[in-house]
């Protein structure tokens, strides 16, 4: 009954050595504040910088798309031009989504899926962006104007 698994015991042993700001004596806590906060700021700063770099990379490498491609269950069912305003009802599996193309942006305005994540995804206009409706197995993706390869079949796992 009193046997503790080895790993667990080691973990709780090493626990003691680790600086733990939760409940330290006041002097130790103060020292941690002075010495430790610098490292924290550096790490958080690095994380923010990396995030900004990612945003920049996404911005740079994904130009405005030209084509709105609709796929149901991995098969391309329709392609529309992004520059032509239109509203079209897409029939996915077990339901439909209302796709609107307007002002060089595409978005799903309405859908009868339970989660409505496709509606909440919002407007897309850049190459590689997509609106996905998993319940209907529907993907709306922005493509560039280069000839589109269609042999990359997407796999959906529900």
């Amino acid at each position: 009954m009193h046997i503790m698994p080895d790993t667990e015991r080691n973990a709780s042993k090493s626990e003691k050595k680790v600086i733990d700001s939760g409940s330290l004596p006041p002097d130790k806590e103060r020292r941690l504040c002075a010495a430790g906060i610098k490292r924290d700021i550096i790490l958080i700063g690095a994380l923010i910088a990396t995030g900004l770099l990612i945003v920049l990379a996404v911005w740079l490498f994904s130009g405005k798309g030209q084509i709105v491609e609709v796929r149901v269950d991995g098969r391309v069912t329709a392609r529309y031009s992004l520059s032509q305003d239109m509203t079209v009802r897409l029939n996915g599996e077990g339901g439909s989504n209302l796709l609107v193309i307007s002002g060089g942006e595409a978005f799903v305005q309405d859908a009868d899926c339970p989660d409505k994540l496709c509606v909440k995804t919002g407007r897309i206009s850049r190459q590689g962006q997509s609106v996905i409706c998993l319940p209907h197995r529907l993907v709306v993706e922005i493509k560039g104007d280069a000839p589109v390869k269609t042999d990359d079949i997407d796999v959906f796992v529900k």
């Binding site: 995030g51 590689g128 962006q129 997509s130 996905i132 796999v155």
Partner: peptide, 17 residues
């Protein structure tokens, strides 16, 4: 991996923050 598309990598810019 699940959807075998790299198209959603742009979404990391949102989810990162």
């Amino acid at each position: 991996i699940v959807m075998s598309t790299s198209g959603i990598v742009w979404y990391l810019s949102v989810l990162w923050f």
